[in-house]
Structure formats: structure tokens, C-alpha cells
């Protein structure tokens, strides 16, 4: 018998250390994925342990700052005061205030985010119509299939040498690399969206007197939106991952460029800050896209 009187606190459930009332009444838990609670406490422990470990390594002078920067330079036992340098925290502040190579940190970040957004936008603008064409028309499908199947598996970074030769080193070249990364994801998502339309919806629309254009506009397009949005989410992630490498083409501004140049000056702290920023923004993008998805496409998975 489950004990109904002894309820776990809401905090315990949130932390994932106690099962909620429903899970508590399940007798089979191992193998039931929905009975595995969030374990949020352990997530918190992980983060705290990592930060404490970093702090200990700093105070104890365990890791050479060349390989991993101290959390705070003033805590590190420098054997040579000449070498004393700020830690990650101070460096972050100075990057925000003074910037890196005369460019404020937020501008590096915005440059990178802008590149990703442009790449994804152009990828969507070209990929969605092509994906629709491939899903709806056999000539388009025949024409594009070999091209798509051939180019798709090539990592965009492998095209860097050609891209420099053809498009140079400016924004166009970097955006083009990201565009390529997004293009095929969007194309395939749009094609899958078209393929996923239930034939009874199309039949219903025609029986209600809709024309071909109206079926496309009012049935096939909205029906494909969830898949298209998943494509957008994926290409955001992939482009963000490709970005750093794309910025190495000719590093000037952007988080990837900043890291590349910092590497040449062995500024490991800047590199680490870059890594943390890339992780955090990637995470933020994913969260934002999920919120947008719930807001824009509430019918997803409910057809």
C-alpha cells in the first residue's frame, strides 16, 4: 500500500530526490522511463562540484594556467610574479568593458549570432521551396536528388578552400558556409513535411472545392510547419557548431575568431571564456526555439 499521508514536499519532487505521488504508486519502475525523475539535485551537485574543483585547482596551483586558466588570478600561487595574470572572472569583466582587440565582447557575440541567423535564414529561404518542389514535383525531385544526395554528406568545413577561392574571406564567405549547413537540413525537413501530410486532409480540401494553390497554401504548408520548425531548430544548432570553424577562415570578429587569435597569444582564459559563451548561447538558442515552437505551432503532434 502506498502511503498517502506521508506526501513528499514539492521541493523534494522538484529536486528529483523524491518520486511524485503518481510514480510512488507504480510498482514497476525499472524500465519505465516516465518513472525516472529529473535528478535535478545531482545536476546542481555536478555544477557545484565542477566550480569547487576549479577553485581548488586555482588555489592549489594544480593546473598550469597555460592549460587551464585560474578562476581568479589573485588566488593562484604564482611562482613567478612576472607571469601573474588575471583569471577567467577578471578577464571576462575586462572583455565586457574593454573588449578583445578593440572590439567589445558583446559585439563579438552579436557578430557570431548574426552570422548564424543569416545562414539559417538564407538556408530556409532557399531550402524550403526546394524541399517543397522535391516533395511535390517529380521533375524537381529528379533534378535535385543527385545534387542533394552528393553534396549533403560533405561537411561544410571541407568546402572552406573552395569558398575562400570563390567568395573570398568576407561575411559572404562565412555566411555561405553556414548557409550550406542550414540549406540541406531545411530542404530535407521541408520535403519530410510535405511527405507527412495525411492524404485524407488533401482529399478533404479538394472535396471542399480548394484549388491546387489553395491546397498548397492552406493544407500542405501549415501541415509541414512542425517539420520545418524542427529543421530550423536543428540547423540553428548545426550552424552554431559550424560557426567557430567558419570564423577560422579569416578571423576578424566573432567568438570563434576571438578564440583563434587568443590561441596564438596563448590566452587560454579567453579561449575558455569563448567555449563557455558558445555553450551558453547554443543552449539559449535551443531553449528559445522550444518556446517559439510552443507558441507558433501549438498543434504540433496533434494532427
Amino acid at each position: 500500500m502506498a502511503d498517502h499521508r506521508n506526501q513528499p514536499s514539492a521541493l523534494a519532487i522538484w529536486l528529483g530526490i523524491a518520486d511524485n505521488t503518481f510514480t510512488r504508486q507504480k510498482t514497476v519502475k525499472f524500465g519505465d522511463a516516465s518513472a525516472v525523475n529529473s535528478g535535478r539535485l545531482w545536476s546542481i551537485v555536478t555544477v557545484v562540484v565542477l566550480i569547487v574543483a576549479w577553485w581548488i585547482a586555482t588555489v592549489g596551483g594544480i593546473l598550469d594556467p597555460i592549460y587551464w586558466p585560474p578562476l581568479d588570478g589573485s588566488l593562484y600561487p604564482w611562482d613567478n610574479p612576472n607571469r601573474a595574470r588575471p583569471g577567467v572572472v577578471d578577464r571576462f569583466v575586462s572583455l565586457m568593458v574593454e573588449g578583445y582587440r578593440n572590439v567589445p565582447l558583446w559585439e563579438h557575440i552579436w557578430t557570431s549570432v548574426k552570422r548564424v541567423l543569416l545562414g539559417v535564414c538564407f538556408g530556409a529561404l532557399v531550402g524550403i521551396p526546394l524541399g517543397f518542389a522535391m516533395g511535390l514535383n517529380s521533375v524537381a525531385r529528379g533534378l535535385l536528388d543527385p545534387v542533394v544526395e552528393f553534396i549533403r554528406p560533405i561537411p561544410p568545413l571541407a568546402l572552406i578552400p573552395l569558398v575562400i577561392l570563390w567568395l573570398g574571406i568576407d561575411e559572404v564567405a562565412k555566411t555561405f558556409l553556414l548557409f550550406l549547413a542550414a540549406l540541406f537540413i531545411m530542404l530535407i525537413a521541408a520535403r519530410a513535411g510535405v511527405n507527412s501530410v495525411r492524404i485524407s486532409k488533401v482529399h478533404a480540401a479538394y472535396s471542399l472545392g480548394a484549388s491546387r494553390t489553395q491546397v498548397l497554401r492552406h493544407v500542405i504548408l501549415p501541415n509541414a510547419l512542425p517539420e520545418i520548425f524542427t529543421g530550423l531548430r536543428t540547423s540553428m544548432g548545426v550552424c552554431w557548431g559550424t560557426l567557430v570553424a567558419a570564423e577560422l577562415v579569416a578571423a576578424d570578429q566573432g567568438v570563434g575568431s576571438m578564440m583563434m587569435i587568443a590561441k596564438n597569444f596563448l590566452q587560454t582564459d579567453v579561449v575558455v571564456i569563448g567555449i563557455i559563451i558558445i555553450g551558453a548561447i547554443g543552449f539559449a538558442i535551443e531553449m528559445l526555439m522550444r518556446v517559439l515552437e510552443g507558441w507558433l505551432i501549438p498543434w504540433k503532434g496533434k494532427g
Partner: peptide
């Protein structure tokens, strides 16, 4: 505007 590039590039 200094752009980091190796010689060949």
C-alpha cells in the same frame, strides 16, 4: 581591420 590568415590563404 587585421584579419588572421596564414600566408597561403
Amino acid at each position: 581591420d587585421m584579419v588572421q590568415m596564414n600566408g597561403a590563404d
